[in-house]
Design a protein around this nucleic acid. Structure first.
Lengths: 216, 216, 216, 216
DNA sequence: AATGAATGAGACTTCATTCAT
DNA sequence: AATGAATGAAGTCTCATTCAT
């Protein structure tokens, strides 16, 4: 641990070292509790250099959020093969999601725990990320609906709002399970993805058949 | 808003005023970003009085967590009538949960966003709360399984670990939907509860039938 | 420990309870570190009552100094019988001094350690006490000199300044030994007094004979 | 007075300036009454710099105690030539002691008045210093006894405990005289040392002859 | 005779940030 | 490309003291 202390590295390398240190520190301690001193020390550079490259604590945190968000999105998108059936796509995306969060717990913490609780302007960054994810999932649910309809030749029976709520619930459940899986030894990403698919898929299917649960 | 500025109130009343102010401030700004000055001012008292009654920022935060956790648990437990079928119980509990979180957004923020990200010893308080909720939900799922089995005369087919994962997913989805509902105008607690039941119940039923989704 | 909590005591009794608590607290913690809260609690009364009777922390400390100084002076003066030879008087005074400081360690601490280090106006109080003691000792040394001269029919050979220095040294040694004796188990007041007399008396005698030590 | 306000000094220099200011402030006002603001201002730096270099008020005070203790011990040890007779060694040590305390009254105050009354962990530092001094003096008294015995061919007559008491008394007297000499204009260190030698040496001699004072 | 309620002022400490080299 | 030196501002907490009953 601890960055290589070699002097005179090219700017881009130093910058990544600093951001690695920042993600780790922010992710574990939170934005306020993380000090620029901590980050500089962990990065193995002096504080003025951090400011020279990243300008301010706020910009540094924002840069961390964006880097980690992009990495997560790339991982999920890269795992989904467009040609497959919707349920397989969804499963592949979830597996990639759980894999990535397990392999980058500090980055995931920055996105899911810290950025969302630190208020504006950071929460907005995560809202954007989450919006992309929800849209992606919404699209998959819609595709699944269409596939089902095509196979059974029935009329669509899902309001827009229901789909949105379902996507929210699915994403929320995934976020929750990511934290739980990280804390549960022996829980692999694929098992976690299967658990969630089990939980969600049948319900989605029933909904599309118009056989939802109702309090009546 | 802003506490009544009447002087010379009995201790217990002042203490509640302070905790109201603290929950609001902690919930909106987070533990670190909330200053005791802010809280005292919002409570309409001087800072030393806050310290006289609540001892320290840490103890104040802990007291807030416990008060809000107790209020949430009471609301959910009070809404569930033990005699009803499991699905009705679950629905009633969810509705009460969404109602309470909608009516106490700052308290919910303290529990769900802030306490969990502020590290020990606060996270442990919420872990305890969440553990009670998960146990409660786990019990309901088990009851539902037994009811189903009694009706259909089939053997149980749910491993302990699956139930635990399902409860986690359900609670996580509920937590996520609580935030979403708070930010979505016109979304009532009952609608939110119905959305989640739709999403979850059919899936649970299928699982109990041994017809889970699998990647194969 | 802990004053009787009976309510409605006559003023003078309450005042002594408070001063007892104050002497103990000041003596053990020092003026600054002792808080009025501590003192009031130890005295078993509310803080406003302490202020009602003793007016302020400064006045309270001053009152403590004066009470303890008077007690110490009374103890020493009461032990010295004017008719005896000077050395017996000195010994009796020292024994009384060591007895009193051993029996009232907090009071002695207030006088010797705390009041002297807390700056004006408190140091002046102790300077006055010490001045009385030094004058008393100086008188005894003078008397001893006269007795010696009367017996040996020689001219006096002690300058005023030497006597003052000797008295200072003797008092300083006594103060130092008081602390040491308090910390040395099994060291009685009379033994301590004898140690100091052993150390000092022969030297005084030699000096009066003009046989002092000199670097030459 | 007042440190040079030149900016951008090397760390070691600044650190000494800060400790000079701290010794002066602690020595005159005491540990509790001295504020870090006062010290920083007297040192001509901002408060954060004091914390950056010295970490905390406690560590700063401890550093002051150690620096001043070392300086005092060095001064006394450096003045004593091992080859000389014991009485000359003692006198030289006392003269150096009184010289040093006269030239560094604030440092002496830190050691003798403030550190001893501020409680742990500071008192322990001074106990260690004083222990070294008492051991040193004890050694000299023992050496003197042996020299006397060698010259007069008599048996030793001093118990261990008596020697310890005598050393205590001598050190106590010296400490007391140091304060007195500082407050008495025109009193030089050598005069003070001679006064104490006069007071103490003959008494020690008599004791070694077995001719101590006794109340009988 | 006595106290619960309340506070202005000031203490120690930390942090994001800049300056000069 | 990089850093040692330095600080304004703000935060948590304590304390002597008073008010109203």
């Amino acid at each position: 641990m601890g960055a290589t202390k070699a002097k005179r590295m090219p700017r881009e390398v130093r910058e990544q070292q600093m951001m690695d240190a920042a993600v780790q520190t922010f992710g574990r301690r939170g934005y306020r509790a993380a000090s620029m001193d901590d980050i500089a020390e962990l990065a193995g550079v002096s504080k003025p250099l951090v400011y020279l490259y990243l300008n301010s604590k706020e910009e540094l945190f924002t840069a961390c959020i964006r880097r980690e968000a992009a990495a997560l999105l790339d991982a999920v998108r890269g795992a989904v093969e467009p040609g497959l059936p919707a349920d397989r796509q969804l499963w592949a995306g979830l597996a990639a999601f759980f894999t990535h969060t397990a392999e980058h717990p500090d980055g995931w913490s920055v996105l899911h725990r810290q950025a969302r609780t630190t208020g504006e302007p950071f929460a907005a960054e995560v809202v954007a990320l989450r919006g992309e994810v929800v849209a992606f999932v919404t699209g998959l649910i819609g595709a699944a609906a269409r596939e089902t309809l095509a196979a059974t030749d029935r009329a669509p029976d899902l309001a827009e709002r229901d789909v949105a709520g379902l996507a929210q619930a699915l994403v929320g459940a995934a976020e929750s399970l990511a934290g739980w899986a990280n804390e549960t030894p022996g829980m692999t990403a694929k098992e976690t993805a299967a658990t969630l698919m089990n939980f969600a898929w049948a319900g989605l299917g029933n909904l599309m058949d118009g056989r939802g649960w109702s309090p009546g």
